[in-house]
Structures are given as structure tokens and as C-alpha cells.
Amino acid sequence: MATGERGESGRAAAPPKIAVIDLHKSFAGREVLRGVNLEVEAGESLVIVGGSGAGKSVLIKHLIGLITPERGHVIIDGEDLTNCEPARCLAIRRKFGMSFQEGALFDSMTVFENIAFPLRRHTRMDEAAIAARVQECLALVHLDGTGGKATSELSGGMRRRVGFARAISLQPEILLFDEPDTGLDPITSAVIDAVIVEMRKQLDVTMVTITHNMQSAFRIADRIAMLRNGQITAIARPDVFRSLADPYIQKFLAGEPLEEEVA
């Protein structure tokens, strides 16, 4: 299996942080991903947009190896995540933080314990340092004082924000956010965007965010990618993306209905 330098012409000298090569995945005979190719540079903030059910969540789960593709590869820092020893896979995943679309909080734990989980698992921080970091993360997402709550007491938007806080608590190299701002009021949504923009300033954090909110996509993205019909049909810097001629993208940006339906 080819790993390491891929030596593509026209690319920056540094190898991509994440490389997705010809990814195929179907569920019950229905092809969801049909040959996705994608590269994310180190330190880049990529936003993936696309219709509901287009396979964005499926794609982002492939990036961290939660789903095994039928065909294709996901290369993280030159290592193939689709083809590695279980223990090695775990080590690669340590570079990631991910927030799930529905939160995926551990319901046997409190909010505090959820956010502390990766810290306790992967660092030697003492309890005081962990508590401080958890408070800091909760404050970032405007949820101070909810640490003692059970996850079942939270609203949907609160769950999503706790999931977001849990993803960033360890300050990983790669962050994956699956619709972090869906179901949030515009102000709280802007708060999440601000946190992402703040993290984007740190040069070594690579981010992939899925969102339906085009406003926030333009705020947080270095590049925007459109996933449609199981492929990346367009990928461009925000200003370029805005003026792409593709009629689907124009309808998507304008929020207008489409005559021909997606397969």
C-alpha cells in the first residue's frame, strides 16, 4: 500500500494532513459515496456542505475510521487508516477530536465527566488541572455551571455544545465537527463559529466542519467543498466558491428549490 509522499504536481510541498482517495461506500445496495477524493492541508479549515442525506456524516466518519469503506483509502499523516493494526488505529485516532451530529454524550456520566473523559484517558493531568480545563471548555461554549448536570437534562443544542467542548478539550491536531451549529439560535451559533475561528489561528490545528449554515461556512472556512451524488463536485476558497457557475451551488447558496431531483 502506497503511503507517504504522493508527489502530486501542483501541490504544496508539505504532504496533506488528510488524504481521501477514491472512497466508495454503500448501505444496503445504495451507493452513498461514489469515489470521494479530498485532501486537507495541515492547519487548514475545510467546510463540507451538501444536501441532507448526501453522505456528509458518512464521509466524516470515514475520516476517523468509524466506518470501513468498500473501496478507497483514508491517509492520515501518511498512514493508511483503512488498513492498520487495531492498536495502531487507536494511536492514529489520538490525533483527533470529533463532535457528533447528535452529541453522542455518554449518558452514564455527567457533563463534567464527559468533557473530562479524553483528558483522564490520555493525559497525566491531575484532577485540579482537569477541572480547570473542563471549566474553560464549558465557558467557551457558554455552558458555565452545567458541569454537574446529567446529560439527559440537556436540550438538543446544549448536548451538541457539550459534544463540541468534549471534542476540543484535549486540543487535538485534527478536529471534526458534524454540524456543530444546527439547532442553535443565531447568537449561540456565532459563539461556536468564534471558537472555531479562534482555533483556526493556531497554525497546527486542522479542521473539517460539516454545516448547513452557509453564513458560518463563509466565516470559518479556508476552503468549502460540496458533496453531491457521492462525490466532491466542487472545492474552492470561500470567495471563489460563492461565484462558482454550477447551478446547483447557486441554488444551494440562495436557498432555492431545485427542479431536477438528486438521485
Binding site: K61, I64, G65, L66, P86, L90, A91, R93, R94, F96, G97, M98, F100, E102, A104, L105, F106, D107, F117, P118, R121, H122, R166, L176
Partner: peptide, 18 residues
Amino acid sequence: GTMRVTEQIDALYAMATE
């Protein structure tokens, strides 16, 4: 089973926990 369908098992994987 509940942890599976609510993606808590995926979340464990995602936090590098087998």
C-alpha cells in the same frame, strides 16, 4: 445496544478508546 444506537460507541472510538 443503547450506546451503539446513540453513537456512544463511535464516540469511544473517536476518543481513541477501544
